[in-house]
Computed example of a mutant assay.
Amino acid sequence: MSNASSSPLARAALAHVSICVPTCNRPDLLIECVDSCLAQSYPHVEIVIGDDSTDARSRQLILQRYRDEPRVRYEKHEPPLGQARNVSSLFERARGDKILLIHDDDLLTSDAVDKLVSLWQRYPQLDAAFGAQYEADHDGAIDLAASARLNEAFRRTQAREGLQPLAGRTGLIQMFPNNGWMADARLVKRVGYDARYGVCCDYVFGTELCP
């Protein structure tokens, strides 16, 4: 395991990355999220959206804004699948070599995918990677103090940068399922999200991904 605070390296082998985005009843936030995914400096991405919304607002916005954008792959679930099954369906639909999961109220910095992919060039046997996070309000203003506290709490700091010696600790204490992680697609599909665990499905996923 590694975090992603290092600078991007030269792209020796360009992986295809599937950015998976589950959404439910937050159309305006979803558009901001997708725009941040499309703004990536890394060229080989697709955005896979699973929509559990109870109305058609998200669908209408996606069709209006991204009708001619081949990188955006959208699916409306009727009836809604629920959190675990929605995420599982995104994993199944992902075509990339790597999977990155974020939610509809999250944004990616423009170099996020580039930085994460570069870690596989540095550590070819890497299974999964993650980086520091920022806390921001709905206007996009970043709370630097809150962000520093968040990253310190989950041990996502420069002092702890590099390969993580204890994978189990990464899953349990560093809360691997927290947003912004990237992992090998075959591993993600094998572990999956299990609906039996309800709202804890992401936590179980993280512990099973990092045994």
Rank of each mutant, 00 (worst) to 15 (best):
C37V: 04
C20N: 07
P211D: 06
T170D: 03
P80S: 07
L108H: 09
Y197I: 04
E69K: 08
K189Y: 03
A129M: 09
V17P: 08
F176K: 01
R93P: 01
L81W: 01
D137E: 05
Q174R: 15
P27Q: 02
L100I: 08
D35H: 11
R160Q: 12
A148H: 10
V117C: 07
E46C: 13
G206Y: 01
D202E: 15
G198S: 08
W181G: 05
E152R: 14
F130E: 09
S36A: 11
S53V: 02
Q40A: 05
R95M: 09
S2L: 11
Q60S: 14
Y193M: 12
K76R: 15
L81Q: 07
E92I: 02
R169K: 04
N25A: 12
A128N: 01
D114L: 06
L30R: 01
T54H: 12
N178G: 15
S41D: 15
D105A: 10
G198D: 07
L14D: 08
S118L: 05
N151S: 09
D114P: 00
P79T: 01
P8F: 12
R11Q: 09
D202A: 11
L61F: 11
L172Q: 14
L187F: 03
L90W: 00
S7C: 04
P43C: 13
L38G: 06
P22R: 03
L209Q: 04
V117I: 06
E161V: 03
I173C: 04
L14P: 11
L63F: 05
M175R: 07
Q174D: 14
T54N: 10
G171W: 05
S6Y: 06
S7Y: 10
F130V: 15
A39E: 13
P79G: 02
C201Y: 00
F91I: 13
S88T: 10
G206A: 05
Q133C: 12
S18N: 06
R186P: 00
Q158L: 08
A132Y: 06
K189W: 01
S110K: 09
A84I: 05
T157S: 13
R85M: 10
I102W: 02
D51W: 04
F130H: 13
E208S: 10
